[in-house]
Design a protein around this nucleic acid. Structure first.
Length: 117
DNA sequence: CCCGTGACTCTAC
DNA sequence: CGTAGAGCCACGG
């Protein structure tokens, strides 16, 4: 018999897609919860991504490469997870300052680029 | 079924 | 930079 809703992926399927994206992050590469969700196909699934990580048990999952949209670590400052995440990121050469990862600098000649039109 | 609770995000002040 | 509110999604009571 036909399935009830073939179009909307089950919660399990969503969880799997989210995990796949997180696992695809290379060492030293970081992404926000929202970005992870988007890559997995869920434009508004930031909270979903967070939930999936919170429930994860796989010790090999690179969960530490996922941060808030502004580059800050999501855990409460100085909490267990906070310190652990900062430690893991630095171990990969990521620059973490005040619980925050340096955002990519804008191109120096961005203005020239825009005004050249 | 309503309601509270997050490893969230965006927009307005 | 900081706070407040609203939207968002899955879960558990």
């Amino acid at each position: 018999m036909p399935r009830k809703s073939p179009d909307i992926p089950s919660t399990d399927a969503r969880r799997a897609r989210i995990l796949a994206v997180v696992r695809s992050l290379a060492p030293g590469e970081v992404a926000s919860y929202g970005e992870v969700a988007r890559r997995a196909g869920f434009p508004r699934g930031a909270r979903l991504a967070a939930r999936v990580l919170a429930a994860n048990t796989d010790p090999d999952l690179p969960w530490h490469r996922v941060l808030r949209a502004d580059g800050r670590i999501a855990f409460a400052p100085n909490s267990r997870g906070y310190r652990e995440q900062a430690r893991r990121l630095r171990a990969e050469g990521v620059d973490v300052r005040q619980g925050r990862v340096r955002p990519p600098a804008a191109p120096r000649d961005l203005d020239a680029l825009l005004w050249r039109f």
